[in-house]
Each structure stands twice: as structure tokens, then as C-alpha cells.
Design a protein around this nucleic acid. Sequence first.
DNA 1: CTGAAAGCGCTTACAG
DNA 2: CTGAAAGCGCTTACAG
Lengths: 333, 333
Amino acid sequence: MKRANIREVAERAGVSRQTVSRVINELPGVRPGTQDRVQKAIDELGYIATNTAKALVSQKTATFGLVLADISNPFFPGFARAVFDQANSNGYNVLLCNTDNDLALEKKAILSLAKQPVDGIIIFSNRSDGDFLKSVAKPYLPLVLINRPANFQYAASVQSKNKVGGELAAKHLIEKGCTNFGYIGRLDPSRETQKVRRLMGFKKGLEAKGYSLKESDIELTEPNDIGGYAAATRLLRRNRKIDGIFCYNDIIAVGVLRACKDSGIRMPSKVKVIGYDGIRLGEYVDPKLTTVSIDQYGLGVCAFKQLQKLLENPDKKYRPLWIQPEVLERDST
Amino acid sequence: MKRANIREVAERAGVSRQTVSRVINELPGVRPGTQDRVQKAIDELGYIATNTAKALVSQKTATFGLVLADISNPFFPGFARAVFDQANSNGYNVLLCNTDNDLALEKKAILSLAKQPVDGIIIFSNRSDGDFLKSVAKPYLPLVLINRPANFQYAASVQSKNKVGGELAAKHLIEKGCTNFGYIGRLDPSRETQKVRRLMGFKKGLEAKGYSLKESDIELTEPNDIGGYAAATRLLRRNRKIDGIFCYNDIIAVGVLRACKDSGIRMPSKVKVIGYDGIRLGEYVDPKLTTVSIDQYGLGVCAFKQLQKLLENPDKKYRPLWIQPEVLERDST
DNA sequence: CTGAAAGCGCTTACAG
DNA sequence: CTGAAAGCGCTTACAG
């Protein structure tokens, strides 16, 4: 048993291949009677036109790639879901690749998508150097970069305002009465300047109100709850006066919450903790985590919008879309 | 600017298209000097062979589909990640579709994959009727069904032992000293017999030790934490003697935990709660949730294995692979 | 309203 | 070791 092709349908219906093509693509100019005969043949043979052949002639695959660090990381699914929803309602299929934030895997994924080929790629995994991405971005392979500037042709970006987010965290903690601040950040082998903008914003926000953050009140750690736990323990042991902690992300903050609990430190009365990202998990921990929240779904929608524009007119330049973070107050502050 | 094709590479290298083809596919029988000339032309033109053309002749796309209810549901990412990892290390790309457990969306997704086409589909979303799936499963489109029997040709399945899981839950609660049991299940419009097997197993497990579950101690709800909260409130109000609650899944259980806490019911001393699935969230709630855990990653690995077998030899029949649930004891029992 | 011809970018025999 | 021919399953002009 073999998959039926357009020729077999044409033969069975007693028409030419073009006529079948017109029917399946719902093009005008087919007599109703002919249409019926063709439809009957299609149904009888269980014919489904393949995209490969169509893609070959149209040079469009109606498929794009989504490259991200790790779909099983609670940070991504909201974003990914938005991208899938947009794709689905616009007739696109999407090929997903995980990179684990590994440079080699990221390159491999992008290359594998290029050879598929796809019509474009959304990249939310920022290891690759600009030159590589630039060499990939073509009119036939536009790139949308998330949280990374796309300062070359055939690429656009969606970015979230990390510095603003840091400022918001500072403002919130100050409003809640904190006077001694700590920061628990992310150890990061690479020199990604984006990553430090949350801290920069936090410092700026503190300074705007006459406070400051001492270098000794900054702890860096692996970005997970275990790391957050250990970092908070170190931090609070070193400086017992700290009453407001800003964490690089929610998962670190969850570890911080647990460390405080285990040390018998009351939250939010004695210490207030604010995270970053707004992952669902924050609703379930105790106390519920206050956080600088990024609208992940909105981020995904914007990413698709950029891609769509690029697909329509690859030669134009598109300015970045910016996502505005917001404080989501729960019980930890 | 246009994507270079094999003809242009051939011309630039002064060879035929077949020779270029041999080089890119690393086939033997190309003189080293020729090889170098071709490689040089490839590099200069930034040539990347497209899969579409290759797929057309080989009738293989090296792509398969993954259909699931919702990638943003914490239940799926572990499974999905396993599938992606397997795909990646075996040279496959994967197209992901979300169905929201909606029959129409599921059919649409499967059809859209069929027309891509893909080499096969893994389906973890069980709305479609058998006849539809059967009509899709063809030697050219093998199907792997998760948690659903695949009793037709060109299909295989991976299933988890829901009844055993229910029995394990009963056994565990009894061992922990419970004597009065409640069950909080899932409201489900469709008649999916799979869904009730956890309950069947639970009853069986209780009866094996001389206990039983009264109909009035069963509550059904939407499968989320809000629903679990409300159901637990109703259940505990109706029967204050209940000291062991088995929940259809973890997210319901999380709501149950919260309901108990809010009613001042001590856990695990007064009431013990056990969930099902083993999602990560269970580690973060208070008390940490004991659960009947399914190895989601293993499930994904098995799914790919089945697909691979089907791809190699579509005509053979493959028996289902079974996933064994295990009690993961944490603090709620 | 319908069809014959050419072609999308590759690979698969086959010939030399 | 290399290339000419045919073909995978469609669509795109174009002719009638």
C-alpha cells in the first residue's frame, strides 16, 4: 500500500493533474460537476496532498523553527504555547529544538532547521555569536531573536526590559519598608550583558531613593532552587540586617524562601523576597512569591508578529518589540 | 538574493550535480581533489541542501509529529523533552501540535501532519475515535499512541498501568495507617475507560485489605487545583472521618492540600493525601506531596522506541510497552 | 473551464 | 571515479 498521488486522483476522476490541483487548493474555475468527480476520487483514494512537493515549487514550507533552551524548564512553556497558537491559527507548523543553552547544540539546531528548510526561526537561546546568526539570516531564512538585539538585516527581536524590571523590584521593596538589600544572581560563564541588566536596574532603583547595594550583599549561584537556598544561607549569615532580597529569577527565589523558612526567618515580616519571571510555581510555594512578572504568552505572540512581518517583507528593517515587566505582588513581600 | 541550489554548486565546482550530491551525502567514490573543489564551492555559496527535495525522492522526511494536549501543562514537558532528545540523537526533527484535548483540534493537527508529510506521529491526546486513527495509520504514517491501546495495524502504544497505580495508592495509605478513604477524581465528559482505572485499582487495593470506598466518599471535579480545593472541602465536610485521600492527579492534590491547610487540618497526622503523576510542582508545595509517580521521561523514550520500530518495519505488529508507576513518598502521607 | 509543458531541487539507477 | 537521463509530486504560466 502506497500513498496516493495527484496523478492517480486525476486518472480516477478522468481529469488532468492541474484540475485536481485547482480543487485541493480551492482555486476558482472548476465546473461543479468536475469538482464533484475530483472530490469523489480524492475521498476514495484517501488522497492528501503533500507539502514537500508544494514547498519545492513555492519555495515556502509553511513551517518555521522554534529554538529554545529547554521546553521542560517551567520558564518556557507559556512562551512556546503562544508561538504554537499563533502558528496554528496562521497555517504554520512549527519545528521545536532544545539547545540546553549549549552553543554547539544551538548551532546544530539552527543548521538543521535551515536544511529542512523552514521559512524562518524564532530563537530564545542566546549562545550563538552575532556573526553566526548574521550568516544564517537571509531573506529566505529570517530570524527573530528573543531577549537579544538583532542588529543585522533579515532579523528582528523581542526584548523584555530587564533594567526596568530591576528598578521595579527595588521600588517595590522600598515601598514595602525594606532598608537593607541583598541580591542573589546567576553565575554565568558567558559574558551576556543582558543578564546583568536586572542587577543594574536594581542598583539604580535603590540609588534613586538614597539606598545602595554593597558588593558583599551580592551572591551568585546556579540558577535553581538548590543554588538559591545555599546562596541565601550564605548571604543572611554574612549580613543579618538584610530585610529585602531580590532574586535573579523565581526558581532561585523559591530556594531562598525555603532557606528563610528553615532558618526560622519570618516572611514577609522579617525578610521580604521578590523573584523575577512570574512562573506558575510561584503561586504554589509558601509564602506565595512576589515577583517581577514577564508576560510569557505575550512575548510569544510578539515573537510571531515579528516573524510574520519579516516573512511578508524581509527587506524592511523592524524595530524591536519591548515587553514591559510588572510587579506581581503575592505574599513574600 | 536567493538560496543556492545544487546546480549552482556543480557549475562553480565544474562537476555534475550527482557529484555534489555524493559529497554532501558523504557517499564513497569521489576523488579527494574533486571533493575539495566541491566543498569549496559549497562554502563559497553558503549552500545548504534542502530536505524537501530529498524527501520528495526518498519518500522520507526525517521528521515526525508529536501531538499532545498542551505543552504548557506541567504534565507534558518531561515527556516531550524525552521525545525531542531521542529525535535529536537519531537525526529527526519534530513538529509539535497542541490539541487542548479537543477532538476537532486533534484531528486538524493529525491531518496537518499527514499532509506535511511526516514519517510518523506520536499522539498523547486521546480524543479521536479509533476509526479515524486507523484511517490515518497507514504504512506511510505509523502512529504511536500513549495511554491508549493501538489495536490496529501500523500503530503501537505505550501505556502506563493506571490500575496498578490505584492499587499502589491504596496500599500506601493503608500502610500509613489510614482507615477511612476518600477519592477525588476527574469530571470527564467523554467515556474514556482509561480514566477510571485509577479508581478501579484504588478500590481493588482497599478491598484486598478489607477496606472499601463508599460512593458518597467520591468527589469529581475539574482537573485543577481550584477544583481540588472545592472537592476536598465538600468531601471533608460530608465525612469528617476521612483520613486518607487519593487524588486523580497531582494538580488536584495540590488544591486538596490547600483546602486542608485552610481548614486547619493537620497533614499528614490527621489526613494523608496522595496524588498521581509525579509532576515537579509536588516538591514545592507544603507539605511536599506524596504521589504515584509516572516516569514521564521514560514514557517519552518508550514512545520514540515504538515509533522507530514501526518506521523500520511497518508491517510487523508490536505489543504495547508498559510503564510501571511507583509511589514517591514525600511529606503528605 | 481544462490540459500540455516545464520546472522546483534533489536522488537513483545506469552507463561509461 | 564521474555524468546524462529520468523521476519524486506538486504548481505555474500559458494555450486553447
